[in-house]
Amino acid sequence: MKIISMIPARYAASRFPGKLMQDLGGKSVILRTYEATVATHLFDDVYVVTDSEIIYDEIVNHGGKAIMSIKEHQSGSDRIAEAVAHLDVDIVVNVQGDEPFTEVESLRKVLEVFKNDDKKSIDLASLMVEIKDWEEINNSNTVKVIVDQNDFALYFSRSPIPFPRDKEVDTRYFKHKGIYAFRKEALLDFYKLPMQFLEATEKIECIRYLEYGKRIKMVETNVQGVEIDTPEDLERAKKLWR
């Protein structure tokens, strides 16, 4: 089974433009993410996929592998699907470019899903981490996920799900961490299928898979990590790096 990692990287991020080129301990955020992903030794190859010559040059000039997107894309999955269409691979892992603290054990758990899926019934796998802080649960920048009894995703939302109507129920809340592992076929299907209204409303790309009946296996992890979406996140990341 050939497994590669693709790191989608846009320069013009809406909330924090240029965030991937910000300095983190003497190197850019995107370079830190690339190097951390390579250092896991879990992948046959690691690529950064980008629409930015600045990011492309940053990776290539430091000895890394990068691919320039040919078309304009609305999501990271679309960008990756274009890049892998003609590659001979089985599993493609999407590591977000703004997560420089890539953690080996969590990635290994995600990949185990496919190694144990002899019937190839799982289309993609992703990570979730329990959150208990109500400010984070109510934060629309935090994507929440609810799962069935076998940890297959039922829905993703920026709203608190499930809604805590009964405060006496001991409900657990999970944040979706932006690392996906796809079967190549599922990723290419995503690329061909048009966006539906739920994905368009929430602006969460993995909802498209659910809307078209794909199965997403969620894997629980205890590692929170740091996603760099704002300048404040970058300052937290710098403190953690030090």
Rank of each mutant, 00 (worst) to 15 (best):
A186C: 11
K217N: 10
V143N: 01
T230W: 14
Q96W: 06
G178P: 10
H176M: 08
K214A: 00
A125C: 15
L24Y: 06
S121G: 09
Q196R: 05
Q224M: 05
L111Q: 07
P100T: 09
V49W: 03
K71Y: 11
K214L: 01
V48H: 10
T33Y: 12
A39V: 13
M218L: 04
Q22E: 11
A12T: 08
V223P: 02
E112W: 15
I228Q: 00
E130M: 10
K71I: 09
M128F: 14
D45M: 14
I3K: 15
D45H: 10
S77H: 09
G225E: 02
L210F: 08
D233W: 04
F163H: 12
R10D: 03
I4M: 05
T221I: 02
S28L: 13
A12W: 01
S159G: 05
E136M: 09
I54K: 15
Q74M: 06
G97Q: 10
R172V: 00
Y11R: 01
P164K: 11
Y209Q: 02
K27Y: 14
A237C: 05
F174G: 04
S5K: 05
V48G: 02
E199D: 09
L20Y: 09
S69Y: 00
V60W: 05
R236V: 03
Y173S: 03
L234D: 09
M6S: 03
D118A: 10
V147F: 10
E205T: 10
A12I: 07
C206R: 11
C206T: 09
I216K: 02
G26Y: 14
E103R: 07
M68P: 04
V147I: 08
Y155T: 02
D133L: 15
K115P: 15
L127R: 05
E99C: 06
P100G: 06
G25Y: 12
Q96Y: 03
D98V: 10
V219M: 00
S121D: 12
T40R: 05
Y155M: 04
E220A: 07
I204G: 01
E112L: 15
H41I: 00
R158D: 02
K167A: 07
N138P: 05
I3M: 15
Q149M: 07
K238R: 11
D118H: 12
P194V: 03
V93S: 00
E205F: 01
S69H: 00
Y173V: 03
D166W: 12
N94K: 13
Y173M: 04
I179M: 10
Y212I: 00
R10A: 09
C206H: 14
L20D: 01
G213N: 06
V113E: 13
P17Q: 11
K109Y: 08
D51W: 09
P100L: 13
I122P: 01
L127N: 00
A39Y: 13
F16L: 11
A39F: 15
D118C: 13
T50I: 07
F182D: 01
L42W: 03
F174I: 04
K217R: 12
I207W: 02
V226C: 06
E135A: 13
L42Q: 03
